[in-house]
Simulated scan of single mutants.
Amino acid sequence: MSLYGGGYLTNPYLSKLQKNGNLIAFLDVIAPYSSTNPVMQTILNFSNYENTDEKHPWHSYFDVIGLFKLASYETFFISNQEGFGMWGNAVASIGSNALNVYFSNQGKNSIRYMNFRPDSVLFEYINNIKLKEKNFIIIHLMGSHFIYDYRYENNFKKYKAADIKSNLDEKKRKKIASYYNSILYNDYIINSIYERFAKDDSLILYLSDHAESLYDDKTKSVLGHSIIDKTNAEIPFIFIFSDTFKQKHNNLLVKIQNAVNKAYMSDDLIHTLCDLAGLNYYECDEKRSIINENYNDKRKRLFHNVDYDKFLK
C-alpha cells in the first residue's frame, strides 16, 4: 500500500482522504495468525490467546454481532467470501447472526477462490441499505486474497511485470504486479464504501485479516500467506470518517490520533469497538482498547504463538 510507503502508487483515493483529514492510518498493528479462519476466531469476539484453551474454545465467547444487537444497533453482515464452507466457518457462524445478512457467494465452490467475483459485486446491496438510528455494518471483502488476477476488474490492470523493479524472473514479477493491481482496486472499493456513507455520521474501521509475502519473506521463496513470518503479520489498520463525524465526535478523533503509533494486535479489536461505541458490556476491557488512555501497550504480541518482537531481531 502506498499509503504505508509502498513504492508503487496503489492508494490514490485513500491518500486523498488522508490529505483531506478524513483518514488516520495506524503504523504498528499485527494479526494473530497468517490465515483467515483462525484470525476471525479471535477478532470478532472476546477470545484471545490469554483466555482460550480446550475448556474455553473461541466459540464459547460472546461475539461482536451479539454485542451490538444487545446495544440496540441494526446489524449487517455483508460478505464477498464464502458462507459456510472450507475456510469461512468462523466468520460465517458469527456474521449470520446479524439482523441483515448477505453472502454474494453462498454455496459456491471455494477451492482457490477462483469463482468469486471482484468486490464491487457488493455495491448494489450496500447502496440499498436502509439505515436506522444506530447501525453496525461488517463488510467482508475478498480484498487481495490469492489468486490476485481474480481480485480486480480489467480497467485496473495498471502494473505489468516490466514495471516491477526486481531481480525475480518474469513469471514472479507478473504475479507481484497482479498483487499491486489488486491493492489499487481495493483502494477504489474502500473509497466507494466511504462515499456511500460520507453524508452520514459515519466511522469506518478497515483492517486486513492477515498479510501476504511477495517473495520477501525470510526464505525469499513464498508468494501468499499461511507462513510464520513478519511479512504475513503486519496489517493495515485504518480509520476513515465523514465530515459530520469529525464535527460531532472530535473527542474520539483526538483519541484515535493519539494512538496512531501504539503497538497493537487485532485480536483485541472488539475492545476498541466497545470504546468507539461507548458500550459498557462487562467483558469490554479498556486496557485492550488502543484508543483508551489506559491501554496496555506492554502486552506481548504473539503471531502463531511466537513473540512478534523476535521477528525484528
Rank of each mutant, 00 (worst) to 15 (best):
N135G: 12
L67M: 15
L269F: 05
L302M: 15
N115R: 11
N280A: 03
A277E: 10
N20T: 09
E212M: 15
F237G: 07
P38M: 10
T10D: 07
D275M: 10
N45Q: 06
D53S: 11
F116Y: 13
S266M: 12
L302N: 00
F303M: 09
F237N: 05
V64K: 04
M142Q: 11
M114G: 05
S120T: 14
L205I: 14
I43Y: 15
F123C: 11
S289C: 02
Q18H: 01
F241G: 02
L207I: 06
G88S: 03
T75K: 14
I164A: 08
R173Y: 00
K165I: 13
L67C: 13
S60Q: 14
N258L: 04
D201G: 09
D285K: 11
N261P: 01
F116S: 03
R112Y: 10
S110Q: 03
F156T: 04
S289E: 03
H304G: 06
F68K: 12
S192P: 03
T75R: 09
S226Q: 12
D243H: 04
K132N: 14
T231K: 11
L302A: 10
K108D: 12
F136R: 04
H304I: 04
I111D: 13
G278F: 03
K262S: 08
A90N: 03
G5S: 08
Y125A: 01
S178G: 11
D209E: 06
A211F: 04
T272D: 14
Y61N: 06
N11I: 05
A31Q: 06
P236M: 13
L223F: 06
Q257I: 02
I290F: 10
K300F: 02
Y102W: 08
L203T: 08
C274G: 03
S208R: 01
L27Y: 02
I137P: 00
A211Q: 09
L207S: 04
I189C: 12
Y206D: 03
F146R: 13
A162I: 14
L279K: 08
L302E: 10
F303C: 12
L70K: 15
S226A: 07
L273N: 04
I227E: 12
Y188L: 06
N51H: 13
L141A: 07
D297P: 01
E133V: 02
E133D: 15
I65P: 11
L253G: 10
S192I: 01
D169P: 05
